[in-house]
Design a binder for these strands. Structure first.
Lengths: 193, 193
DNA sequence: CTAATTTCAGAATGAACGTTCCGATTTGAT
DNA sequence: ATCAAATCGGAACGTTCATTCTGAAATTAG
């Protein structure tokens, strides 16, 4: 029996993901959050606790969303190699679109925070394991379907794909990188699958 | 005809590299710099200007040092593939050593700053081009010496090597990553060279 | 020795930070 | 209608930030 929230909590979290993704944890001020989320300081703190708690919630939400997305796309796929190609191609395209989010929020958080923040490190490691497993199962299936070369252990290929994904997500953070550089990386990656 | 500096400017810059590498630009306070460099605020500001100027100088010094190192090692090499293997193996070993610097200062700076700081983006892009060129020449020579497969354009391989290097430098920032993950990435990378 | 010049340590500065608090407002149950 | 509970905008909090200032110490040329 009380007043209702004027905003949707999940929408606000998505906004938090955006601004943290764009500016990083230390680069985002409380004022940035107030402005970008469109709510008052009190609402923000009442709903999400302090800045660190909000960041963790945002990163966990991002993790779940991107994991669910990758997982769903790969599980539905009937041509694994082609799907992986499309996933990377999409990541490359997004790097050149005009939006505030570039690269990968998880990669950014790994680099900025994992070394000193064990809570972040846990999310990051959990994500790596989960993503590796999804790629492992996909690659294994791709090999069984003769869509991916069986000359290499699918576990190794899964880790290798993830590593190259991280790499291009770093490249994506720097504006000046020509698209050809991304395309060349993808081309070589696909040549070994 | 005046008092002499009590510290060596290059040593101080190396210390600045360390602390910025460890904590990032936004995560490093002026007090952190004073403490880690072992000089007073006034000396710090008199010598290097403001925090941003110091960061740029530190990053440029790091760029030159790591470029000179990679360049020299590859140019001296008589077995390119083996040398690349050793370079990656060394990077992996360092990720597990007990020191304050993990991963790559250039990768960290790319992720944290390149999107909003054109001066940083310039250093980062310059570094990518220079590194790519060194790897390109090395791979080309490796192919001529039949140490590296000639089935792929050396330009593409150079970009691919750099991308995987970035990837493992991201992984290195998170403490929990098992060494086997790094080793597997390196194994696959070497298998295509 | 003196004068000129620069470094040094640490205090002082104002701005920006994350966070808390206040009081008005809105809601739904009694 | 009244009351309890939670939201809201925005002011206020103490702290930390990057940077500047102050004045004593050190150095060297004349």
């Amino acid at each position: 029996m009380a007043r209702l929230k004027e905003f949707n909590e999940e929408d606000a979290l998505d906004k938090a993901i955006e601004i943290f993704w764009n500016k990083g944890y230390n680069g985002t001020s409380a004022q940035d959050l107030v402005t970008h989320l469109g709510l008052s300081r009190s609402s923000l703190y009442d709903t999400f606790g302090d800045k660190h708690s909000l960041f963790i919630k945002a990163l966990q939400r991002y993790q779940k969303k991107s994991y669910d997305d990758v997982s769903s796309v790969l599980q539905k796929s009937t041509n694994i190699k082609e799907t992986i190609k499309e996933m990377f191609a999409q990541a490359i395209i997004e790097s050149f679109e005009d939006k505030i989010t570039k690269g990968c929020f998880m990669v950014n958080s790994t680099v900025e925070l994992a070394l000193h923040d064990t809570e972040i490190a846990k999310v990051v490691n959990d994500n790596r394991q989960k993503m590796e497993e999804v790629f492992f199962l996909a690659v294994k299936r791709g090999q069984e379907l003769n869509q991916i070369s069986s000359s290499t252990d699918p576990r190794l290929l899964a880790r290798f794909i993830f590593n190259n994904y991280s790499g291009i997500r770093v490249l994506a953070r720097s504006t000046g990188t020509p698209k050809q550089v991304f395309d060349d990386v993808l081309k070589v990656l696909l040549s070994i699958l």
